[in-house]
Design a protein around this nucleic acid. Structure first.
Lengths: 354, 354
DNA sequence: CACAGGCGCGTCACTAAGTGACGCATAAGT
DNA sequence: ACTTATGCGTCACTTAGTGACGCGCCTGTG
């Protein structure tokens, strides 16, 4: 096989050093798994051979020193018995094939604006090299003398901006590896109203809700799944014990059980009928509530429209409806109407109107 | 310079064919600009030399045929006087250096879940190759016999899901190029209440709001900026006329002028005081409203808290406060309190409670 | 503390591959 | 039909990678 392709593949096999690992830090000395964040020439040889390259150890070693001269971002440690370790510096710029074109670069910049308030910092952090690559492309593409691209794009955020919860990057890393590769881990967790304690977590899944990330897990060998906010962990260390989901565990069923108030009554979609002011309903013509949404004029009252759509009665829907205040009246289903009437009563009382 | 590096750079200089261009479609025969979506050997030579490679045309040609054999995704058209055109197929998988690691891959998958309802389809479309790359990485990383990663992550969306407005991909491409490189364009636009018409647009910027993308532009040589929803364009064609922002135009000032009801009264942050039920305020401890947020107990009423923070009085804030219904009472500033009281009155009337 | 095993690396002759120069073939525009 | 710019085949030449071998260093172990 070709020289060029072998080296390119080799470069692709070298891992990037995780941001939360210090350059000199030695990965935890876990028995079975290879330490993350670096590879050896022997391991690379094996992976290359698995991809069909007929090569040998000496060639890989030669390639590595050759590439090391070309890429200053490529680093290695001293000579060790287990073989030299090779890795990309954590802050290496991403280079992509095919290169990022301005169209894709714009998508990245836009995505960043939309995501930054939503994604927890340790995850957002990891996309930074891509944003940087996108900014470089856009800076190149702009006509000279034309103001910077960022000056010509604005995102008006949808929700109220809130400061994101600070998650320990190392905790995020451990939880993620545990969940991805199926290991248990030992963690120190600070419950909301109790003392800091140490548990063994058997991870089942992650839930992102309202800018907070929750780990769903069982503790030790107890059967009942519980959830834990990631920003309440102070420490986490992988164990060499395989994770085992409790028999019959279904993630969606667990969510639907109401733990996260995702779905109120029951999950079945039903017909929702609204009376909305024209101003409030204006944007529904552009971005409908559902594929079967139907907007008709209200014959008796000019300036008002009748909107109906098939929707699931979620907390989000209630929040969204409340946002319109008196610009919307819920006609059906009755349970939803009753809920909004209760709100109205409560509000009147709160401000001493009744 | 090295052989390997030159070829790698060369690959990076070859553009990806835009998705909205047919494989055989010839780019618009605009005079000054090179057609997008492909390059010639001569152009590549020039770019390589600009990057410090001492090379010649023949070498570039040889490299191209060499790489063509290695990468089936690399395509070219027949021999033409202007030089052969070279490009990556639109659906080429992205390959990155350093490779996407599972941690970054997770960020991409999460980002997709959060973005898909927010980003207009033609922009979201462009990130698909990256999502695909991330899914490949995660599929490799998972322990065998462990259920798929997607089954272990859920995002509970924040807003009410709405169907995104369908933007013509070619329109998005033209608007973007015009804005990025500074050209005017001719477009057919369907205003909300008037007939379809053709205008010459002098683009100034893009605004993303509530899942709709707006182009801010002046028409012909009129001085006043206006905004146009991208999904209302039926066609757009680049012109070879440079775009010129009207003298003194300031994008932020235009937005603040209230065109998009971004900021209500004035933009200055002010102290907001709230009385909230403990349940409603619970998440503010995790994700504060502002850095200086302050939560204290309400002495008279158990189960209630006093929250104060310095905020800008935006439409988003009002929507957010309405979402809590009677679980929050606005104490200050008075204008905001008056607004919520008016809402409560309106609601009581709407449901015939008063 | 000495030993063994891995691994990195220097070196050799050999072989494969890229280089520069030249000329002809080919397609688009005049 | 002519011009021009580009692609491409081919030559001897030069550079760079290959396979094989052995030395020495580092590490972990007895």
């Amino acid at each position: 096989m070709s020289d060029f392709l072998r080296r390119l593949t080799l470069l692709g096999l070298i891992p990037r050093r995780p941001q939360w690992e210090g350059a000199a830090a030695v990965a935890r000395p876990s028995a079975g798994r290879a330490p993350t964040g670096k590879t050896s020439a022997a391991a690379l040889l094996e992976q290359l051979q698995a991809r069909g390259f007929a090569t040998n150890l000496r060639a890989v070693q030669r390639d590595l020193v050759y590439l090391d001269k070309l890429f200053p971002e490529l680093e290695h440690d001293g000579q060790r018995a287990g073989g030299r370790g090779w890795w990309w510096r954590a802050d290496t710029q991403v280079q992509q094939l095919p290169a990022l074109d301005p169209a894709m670069a714009l998508s990245f910049v836009m995505a960043r604006e939309l995501l930054d308030p939503l994604l927890p910092p340790p995850l957002a952090q990891r996309l930074v090299p891509y944003y940087a690559a996108a900014e470089r492309v856009l800076a190149d593409a702009g006509a000279p003398g034309w103001t910077a691209w960022r000056e010509r794009v604005r995102v008006i955020p949808e929700g109220q901006p809130l400061c994101p919860a600070p998650i320990e990057p190392a905790v995020m890393g451990v939880v993620q590896t545990a969940l991805l590769e199926g290991w248990r881990f030992r963690g120190r967790y600070q419950p909301r109203e109790r003392d800091l304690a140490e548990y063994v977590f058997n991870p089942l899944g992650l839930v992102f809700r309202a800018r907070v990330v929750y780990l769903v897990a069982t503790l030790w060998d107890y059967p009942d799944p519980r959830h834990f906010a990631l920003h309440r962990f102070t420490q986490a260390d992988l164990l060499d014990v395989a994770a085992t989901p409790p028999p019959g565990f279904d993630f969606d069923a667990y969510l639907a059980s109401g733990t996260f108030d995702y779905v109120t009554a029951d999950g079945a979609p039903q017909r929702v009928e609204l009376r909305m002011s024209e101003a409030a309903a204006a944007h529904l013509e552009e971005t409908p509530l559902s594929a079967d949404q139907c907007i008709t004029a209200e014959p008796q009252s000019p300036g008002w429209l009748r909107v109906s759509a098939t929707l699931r009665e979620t907390e989000q829907l209630v929040w969204w409806l409340r946002g319109f205040a008196d610009q919307v009246e819920i006609l059906a289903p009755p349970a939803l109407r009753a809920r909004l009437i209760a709100d109205a009563r409560g509000l009147a009382e709160r401000y001493g109107l009744s």
